Simulated assay, not measured.
Amino acid sequence: MYIIPERLIADLVSAEDAFDAMRGCFAAMADGDAYNFPVIREALGEGRQYGFKSGFDRAGAVMGVKSGGYFPGNAARSLINHQSCVLLFDPETGRPTAMVGGNLLTALRTAAASALSIDQLARPDAQVLGMVGAGHQSAFQLRAALRVRKFTRVLGWNRNPDRLSRLAEVCAEAGVEFTPVDLAAMQEADVIITITSSNAASLLADHVSAGCHISAMGTDTIGKQEIDPALFARAAVFTDEVAQSVTIGEAQHAVAQGLIGREDITPLGAVVTGAAEGRVSPDQITIFDGTGVGLQDLAVAQTALSRARAQGLGAEVVF
Rank of each mutant, 00 (worst) to 15 (best):
194 T>I: 05
196 T>F: 12
196 T>G: 14
197 S>A: 13
198 S>M: 09
201 A>L: 11
202 S>L: 15
202 S>I: 11
204 L>N: 13
205 A>R: 11
205 A>H: 13
206 D>Q: 15
207 H>S: 14
207 H>Q: 10
208 V>T: 11
210 A>F: 09
212 C>H: 13
213 H>N: 04
217 M>L: 15
218 G>S: 10
220 D>Y: 15
221 T>L: 10
222 I>G: 09
222 I>Q: 09
223 G>I: 09
224 K>C: 06
225 Q>W: 10
225 Q>R: 14
228 D>S: 15
228 D>E: 06
228 D>L: 07
229 P>Y: 07
229 P>V: 09
233 A>Y: 06
235 A>F: 00
236 A>F: 00
236 A>I: 00
237 V>H: 01
239 T>G: 00
239 T>I: 00
239 T>E: 04
240 D>T: 08
241 E>L: 11
242 V>I: 10
242 V>Q: 01
242 V>S: 01
244 Q>R: 07
244 Q>W: 03
246 V>D: 04
249 G>W: 00
249 G>P: 02
249 G>Y: 04
250 E>R: 05
251 A>Y: 01
254 A>R: 03
255 V>W: 01
255 V>D: 05
257 Q>E: 13
257 Q>H: 10
258 G>T: 05
258 G>H: 04
260 I>T: 08
263 E>M: 06
263 E>H: 07
264 D>W: 01
265 I>D: 00
265 I>T: 04
266 T>A: 00
267 P>D: 03
268 L>S: 04
271 V>Q: 03
272 V>W: 01
273 T>C: 01
274 G>Q: 01
275 A>K: 13
276 A>R: 02
281 S>T: 12
282 P>H: 04
282 P>L: 00
